[in-house]
C-alpha cells in the first residue's frame, strides 16, 4: 500500500517550554478535503507551521509520502495567513505567483519562460489574470487571497496546507475558493484548511479535525462534526492542560527532548 500523503506521528510543539499542541497523531489520505477547526489559540496555525518545519517540534515527526517532512517539503504547497506579509511590498501579483515556482528552481536559478507560463495559468485559474501587473497593495483582501492560492497552485503539488484562506474575503472569492478546493480534491490532492466558520464546514468539507491543544476528534464530517465533539472542543474544559503547560513554562522544564 502507498504511504499516506501526510502522516503526523505523536507530534508535540512547545513555545518557550510551554506545549501548545499535545500528542497529535493522525494521517490524511489522498483526495481528502479536511477542515481544521478549533477556538482561538487552539494551535491550528501552529500545526500547519509545524508540518512545514517552520516551528521546532518538541517531539514526534511528520512524514509526507512516507518520508521525513524536511525531505519532501517542496512537494507540499503552503498558503500562509494573508496578514502574515506586508502587502505594500514593491511587487506585482504575477511576481508573487511566480514565487510558487522558486522551490522547483535550483538555488540562484532564474525562473524560465515555462515557469512564467505556469504562473499565468494559475492566475487565470483563480480569475485574477487581468490583475497580473497590479501592485499587490492595490488588490482587495479577497484578490490578495486569490494571489496566495495561485502561488500555491504554481507549486504543482498534491498536498495543500492552507491557513485561514476564507478569512476576510468577499462572497465571490469564497465561492471561487470552494470551487478550487473541490477541483483539487477531484484531482486526488490532499487539502488541509484551517477554517473559522463552523456553519460552512459541512457544506465545504468532507472531513473535519477538531483541534484544541490536542486533536479532539478527526473523521468524516457526518460522524465527527457533532454537537458533542464541538462542545468538547469549544467547551473550555482544558484548565488542567493549560495549567500544566503554564507550569512548564514558568519552571522552564524541558518537555521531553525539547530544545526550545
Amino acid at each position: 500500500m502507498n504511504p499516506p500523503p501526510i502522516e503526523i506521528h505523536d507530534l508535540t510543539v512547545a513555545y518557550h517550554h510551554r506545549p501548545v499542541l499535545w500528542d497529535i497523531d493522525v494521517s490524511f489520505a489522498a483526495g481528502e478535503l479536511v477542515a481544521i477547526v478549533g477556538p482561538n489559540g487552539a494551535g491550528k496555525s501552529t500545526l500547519i507551521k509545524a508540518m512545514m518545519g517552520l516551528v521546532p517540534l518538541a517531539s514526534g515527526h511528520v512524514n509526507f509520502f512516507g518520508e521525513p517532512s524536511v525531505k519532501r517539503r517542496s512537494t507540499v504547497a503552503y498558503v500562509p495567513q494573508r496578514g502574515s506579509v506586508d502587502w505594500d511590498f514593491p511587487t506585482t501579483a504575477l511576481d508573487v505567483v511566480l514565487m510558487g515556482r522558486y522551490g522547483q528552481l535550483p538555488l540562484f536559478g532564474r525562473p524560465r519562460r515555462k515557469d512564467k507560463e505556469i504562473a499565468v495559468e494559475c492566475l487565470k485559474k483563480v480569475g485574477m489574470l487581468e490583475f497580473a501587473k497590479r501592485q499587490i497593495s492595490q488588490l482587495s483582501g479577497g484578490q490578495q487571497q486569490r494571489v496566495f492560492l495561485a502561488r500555491a497552485l504554481a507549486q504543482q503539488t498534491s498536498v495543500y496546507l492552507m491557513d485561514e484562506p476564507f478569512a476576510g474575503v468577499d462572497a465571490s472569492t469564497e465561492k471561487a475558493i470552494v470551487v478550487l478546493l473541490r477541483e483539487l480534491r477531484e484531482q486526488g490532492s490532499t487539502v488541509l484548511v484551517v477554517h473559522h466558520d463552523l456553519q460552512t464546514v459541512p457544506e465545504y468539507f468532507d472531513s473535519v479535525m477538531l483541534l484544541n491543544l490536542r486533536c479532539v476528534a478527526f473523521g468524516p464530517v457526518e460522524t465527527t462534526f457533532t454537537a458533542e465533539n464541538l462542545q468538547k472542543t469549544y467547551g473550555g474544559h482544558l484548565h488542567l492542560l493549560t495549567e500544566v503547560g503554564e507550569k512548564l513554562r514558568q519552571r522552564e522544564w524541558r518537555h521531553r527532548n525539547a530544545t526550545h
Binding site: 512545514m52 517552520l54 503552503y78 500562509p80 502574515s84 514565487m99 522558486y102
Partner: peptide, 14 residues
C-alpha cells in the same frame, strides 16, 4: 522571497 514572505521561503525549502 525572503524579504516578502520568509515563512513561505522556508516552506518551499529555501
Amino acid at each position: 522571497v525572503i524579504s516578502f514572505d520568509p515563512d513561505f521561503a522556508g516552506a518551499i525549502g529555501l
